[in-house]
Amino acid sequence: MQIFVKTLTGKTITLEVEPSDTIENVKAKIQDKEGIPPDQQRLIFNGKQLEDGRTLSDYNIQKDSTLHLVLR
């Protein structure tokens, strides 16, 4: 499925993911596309910070959902 990740600069990254993917996996995909190390990434969905060990389906993230990427 496709999800979107919006950065603070207003750029939107499109990712191909599975609901069973962990947040860690998603961060690795963002690193592949953008070169941002996962330990600098914080992903936010519906105002909640997403934890590495959880999956997209844990957070009820579905296709065409938009996550927000904050760098630390």
Results as ranks from 00 to 15, higher is better:
L15Q: 01
K33T: 03
I36E: 04
L71W: 10
Q49P: 09
S20W: 10
N25A: 07
L69W: 08
E16H: 13
I13F: 07
T22S: 04
G35H: 14
I13L: 10
I61M: 02
N60Q: 07
I44E: 05
L56P: 01
P38Y: 12
Y59M: 04
V26L: 14
L69Y: 02
L69P: 00
L69D: 01
L8K: 09
E24D: 02
E24N: 14
V70K: 05
K29H: 07
R54F: 12
F45A: 11
P19Q: 13
L50A: 14
I30Y: 06
L43A: 01
Q49V: 08
L71V: 12
Q31Y: 10
Q2M: 13
K33I: 14
G47L: 11
I13V: 14
E24W: 02
P37S: 14
K11S: 10
V70N: 03
V70I: 08
Q49G: 11
K33R: 02
E16S: 15
D58M: 10
D39F: 05
S57T: 07
F45N: 03
G35L: 11
N46D: 08
I36T: 06
F4D: 10
L43H: 01
E34H: 09
R54M: 11
I13W: 02
K11F: 03
T14K: 05
H68D: 09
R54N: 02
I3T: 01
Q62R: 08
S65M: 13
N46K: 03
P19H: 05
R72N: 09
Q31L: 13
Q40F: 06
V17S: 07
G35I: 04
F45L: 06
I3F: 01
K6E: 06
L43W: 02
D52G: 07
E34M: 07
K63M: 07
Q31I: 10
E18M: 08
K6P: 01
Q31H: 07
I23A: 12
Q2A: 11
Q31V: 06
V70E: 07
L69V: 11
Q41P: 04
T12S: 03
L8V: 05
Q2S: 10
S65V: 04
T9Q: 11
S57F: 10
V70H: 11
